[in-house]
């Protein structure tokens, strides 16, 4: 399943970034991109529209789902059963990220990357357009 997601992500972001490179500056296209990204990634990954997507580098588990928004791995407070210290009903996004990473083919090494802090100006914009720039 996660291998399929990985390929889907690879293909779709390549394609969409290509489209964005051509039409991203157009205001209407920009709006469409934002809406489309939100409509697809929100139900699938709980996307928060940070505008700087690193899903493929974090085991296809969105780090913005972490209440501390840690983009560089799990905090020390993960409960023994793998749930979040802040929400016992939620599995830690990094527990999922690590499980998935071990099954992934293309991006499995990416979890070791040191992620830069978020650029807060990009919130609410399309990561596909931002990637293409």
């Amino acid at each position: 399943m996660v291998k399929l997601l990985e390929i889907l992500y690879l293909v779709s972001s390549k394609f969409l970034s290509g489209v964005a490179r051509k039409y991203g500056d157009n205001r209407i296209m920009n709006l469409l991109f934002v809406k489309f990204e939100w409509a697809t990634k929100k139900p699938m990954f709980g996307c928060q529209m940070c505008g700087q997507c690193i899903l493929h580098e974090t085991g296809m588990s969105c780090p913005m789902g972490c209440p501390k928004e840690i983009r560089n791995g799990p905090c020390g407070g993960v409960r023994t059963d793998g749930t979040c210290e802040l929400d016992p009903k939620m599995t830690c996004v990094w527990v999922t990220a690590w499980e998935n990473t071990n099954k992934m083919r293309v991006f499995s090494q990416k979890i070791d990357l040191i992620q830069k802090p978020l650029d807060r100006r990009l919130k609410g914009t399309s990561a596909w357009i931002n990637q293409s720039r």
Binding site: G73, P74, G76, G77, V78, R79, T80, D81, G82, C92, W94, V95, W98, E99, I111, D112
Partner: peptide, 10 residues
């Protein structure tokens, strides 16, 4: 803390 196998990598 879980995921224990990831902790050294972190």
């Amino acid at each position: 803390a879980p995921p224990q196998s990831y902790r050294p990598h972190r």
